Amino acid sequence: MAYEFIKVDREGPVTVITLNRPDVMNALHSPAHFEMDEALNAFAADPDQWVGIITGAGERAFSAGNDLKHQAGGGGMASPKSGFAGLTSRFDLDKPLIAAVNGVAMGGGFEIALACDIIIAAEGAVFALPEPRVGLAALAGGLHRLPRAIGVKRAMGMILTGRRVSAKEGEDLGFVNEVVPAAELMTAARRWAATIGELSPMSIRASKQAVMRGLDEPSLEAAITGQNKYPAIAALFRSEDFKEGPMAFAQKRAPQWKGR
């Protein structure tokens, strides 16, 4: 499918989605949200796509978040049920997503990155939730995901000041997984995707679902005792991969994952 505000490339089992509004630092408006929703729906439904990477076009920005000029000019800001960028309220995506942050990740842009499972940042990347500076609040998940990622006190230090955080500080705080030179960003993101791709996609989906659902359980005991009821874990137990992994190990060969 052809898109106007994003680009989608499939590289073997990896889907690369590029926010493609570099003239406005990849800020998103309503049409872009719905394009992202369609692209992520397609990624989720395609059995041959195992890992996703989200990045931004150009060198300046991953995403500056909400397109405030579009909003101020009377443009509609409708978004799909899946949330900002078709992602921030998407709670049923068990395939892993990597954010390759190539510059500014502000407001909704930071919330997109936080909604991904892994964040790889270029050395010059900058993160912030500056919504209070313009009379708004980070209601697309940032106020909830950031404390879960780095702890309440450190998150409050960012949220209540709207301050900018460098890629290195983001790594120190714990929400960035790796910082690399800008020229190496996509190479690093693809390296992470390839490493994930060496593993059973059924196991990866079961693991992600268990982590995310387990965090919402009232206790560690409830998370452990309840995990076998999760759909992705039940699917793992029924899968060809569940048989292939031990067989390949016993035969001392590389497994041939099917993702089913």
Results as ranks from 00 to 15, higher is better:
Met1Ile: 02
Met1Cys: 09
Ala2Ser: 07
Glu4Leu: 12
Glu4Ile: 12
Lys7Ser: 02
Arg10Ser: 08
Val16Tyr: 04
Ile17Pro: 02
Arg21Ser: 10
Arg21Asn: 11
Pro22Phe: 04
Asp23His: 13
Ala32Trp: 10
Phe34Arg: 01
Met36Ile: 10
Glu38Met: 15
Glu38Ile: 10
Ala42Phe: 03
Pro47Glu: 15
Asp48Arg: 12
Val51Ser: 02
Val51Gln: 03
Thr55Ser: 08
Thr55Lys: 12
Arg60Asp: 06
Gly65Asn: 07
Leu68Pro: 02
Leu68Phe: 08
Leu68Gln: 14
Lys69Val: 13
Lys69Glu: 13
Ala72Cys: 01
Gly73Met: 00
Gly76Arg: 15
Ser79Asn: 05
Lys81Val: 14
Ser82Met: 07
Ser82Cys: 13
Ser82His: 11
Gly83Met: 09
Leu87Ser: 04
Ser89Ala: 13
Asp92His: 03
Lys95Trp: 11
Pro96Phe: 04
Ile98Lys: 10
Val101Asn: 02
Asn102Tyr: 13
Gly109Lys: 14
Ala113Tyr: 15
Ile118Ala: 02
Ile120Phe: 02
Ala122Arg: 02
Val126Ser: 13
Leu129Asn: 08
Glu131Tyr: 05
Pro132Cys: 00
Ala137Leu: 06
Ala138Trp: 03
Gly141Met: 12
Pro147Met: 00
Arg148Asn: 14
Arg148Phe: 07
Ile150Met: 14
Ile150Val: 09
Gly151Asp: 02
Val152Thr: 11
Ala155Val: 06
Gly157Ile: 04
Ile159Trp: 14
Leu160Ile: 03
Leu160Asn: 15
Gly162Pro: 11
Gly162Glu: 13
Gly162Arg: 07
Val165Asp: 00
Ser166Asp: 02
Asp172Pro: 01
Gly174Arg: 00
Val176Ser: 00
Val180Thr: 14
Ala182Lys: 06
Ala183Glu: 14
Leu185His: 03
Ala189Tyr: 01
Arg190Ala: 01
Arg191Asp: 04
Ala194Pro: 00
Thr195Trp: 07
Gly197Met: 05
Glu198Val: 07
Met202Gly: 13
Ile204Gln: 05
Arg205Gln: 12
Ala206Gly: 04
Ala206Met: 09
Ser207Ala: 12
Arg213Leu: 11
Arg213Gly: 11
Leu215Gln: 13
Leu215Lys: 10
Leu215His: 10
Glu217Cys: 11
Ala222Cys: 05
Ala223Arg: 09
Ile224Ala: 11
Thr225Tyr: 08
Gly226Pro: 04
Asn228Thr: 12
Tyr230Trp: 13
Ala234His: 12
Ala235Glu: 15
Leu236Val: 03
Arg238Ile: 00
Arg238Asn: 09
Gly245His: 06
Pro246Gln: 04
Phe249Leu: 10
Ala250Val: 14
Gln251Trp: 04
Gln251Ile: 01
Arg253Lys: 12
Pro255Cys: 00
Trp257Ala: 00
Gly259Asp: 01
Arg260Asn: 11
